[in-house]
Design a protein around this nucleic acid. Sequence first.
DNA 1: CCGCCGTTTGGACGAATGTCAAGATTTTCT
DNA 2: AGAAAATCTTGACATTCGTCCAAACGGCGG
Lengths: 205, 205
Amino acid sequence: MTSPAAVKRRTRVDKFEDRRRELADAALLALADLGYARTSLRTIAEHTQFSHGLLHYYFADKVELITYCVRRYKEACVKRYEGGVGGADTPSALAEACADGLAAALEEAPLMHRLWYDLRSQSLFEAAFRDDVAEIDDSLQDMIWRNVRAYADLTGADPTCAPSEAYALFDGLFQQALQRHIIGAENALDDLRSGVRKLFPRLVS
Amino acid sequence: MTSPAAVKRRTRVDKFEDRRRELADAALLALADLGYARTSLRTIAEHTQFSHGLLHYYFADKVELITYCVRRYKEACVKRYEGGVGGADTPSALAEACADGLAAALEEAPLMHRLWYDLRSQSLFEAAFRDDVAEIDDSLQDMIWRNVRAYADLTGADPTCAPSEAYALFDGLFQQALQRHIIGAENALDDLRSGVRKLFPRLVS
DNA sequence: CCGCCGTTTGGACGAATGTCAAGATTTTCT
DNA sequence: AGAAAATCTTGACATTCGTCCAAACGGCGG
């Protein structure tokens, strides 16, 4: 089995990682509130029960904290979507399920999605974020592509677009819906559902 | 006619407005380089031949300067696109012309478009930017819709989507292409052209 | 030539930022 | 229980930020 030293060490790094996660979650709440540009380490610390100095005990600098947050956000993100839309036996049912899923995700946590687009924009200026952002983009693209493929299978046809193409189109709809939802447009969610539902048949033979 | 006083006064405010424009243009260059989050008034001043104190002579505060920049960006933006694609007599020719136009716009000034998406993201946190951003979004949506309508007319069919829907889809393609172009993907522009060309027939009956 | 007024400068201010280190506190191990 | 290691707090640091202001500049009318 594992030696006592190994056990001790494992619990130690686990506690360390647990606290890192705890701090990162609090940081994500602060970031979702204020956005990257306006979130300082001290305001992040205010979202925790600890002092600001502790952040430098668990993270080397601000960039490492933010990138850790992005990675953590991604974990929750893929876990959220990997369930997928399994039980749909007709094309339009799948399209509707996907539309409802995206609309529900937007309604459930609009501030988190706002943060995502903020961080993705920042990654165009700050190269340190690019790898993590690209990973998240890839997993989102996979999620979209699984649905498009499943839709095509149900119709007996083939997709007429590349995975990245499909992702760009869905993402465009989602981002616009988020924008309008945050402004306060009450038809943003319905328009998103409608747009997604109509997008599927546009992407197969 | 205009009185001498009015003439004199007009030249005065014109000089004032000219300098505002000059400063805003320099600010736009700085913003395009660094992004909203990292651009300070002093770094903006370094892009001009003046000192940082001058900015507060022409702009009340930073928000007024930025919003003025956004408005100025919009002017150039609509002027850039209002020419449109007049001379196209077949649907696929129009689609190709539009695809080439968007790809050329991206290649010509990628940093400006990066700034646009940055500022649009910021507007989701800073309500002061929302009106100007919404105006730009509207004019871009009009630009897209004119092309979709023209394409539909050439095919003798009707668009099967709303203007905002079309804009969201095109914008999704463009934003992804920008992202990949900045990362250094050499096929980003070609994929954008292909995606745009293929998007038109998807949006008509 | 002087004085005026629109411009422009450069420095100063308080506040906020990221970072760091020394000390206090808590946990862990023997 | 006591020593050692970890966790956490506190205060300080050098910068940088937006903002403001007194003074200097410069052209133009009197």
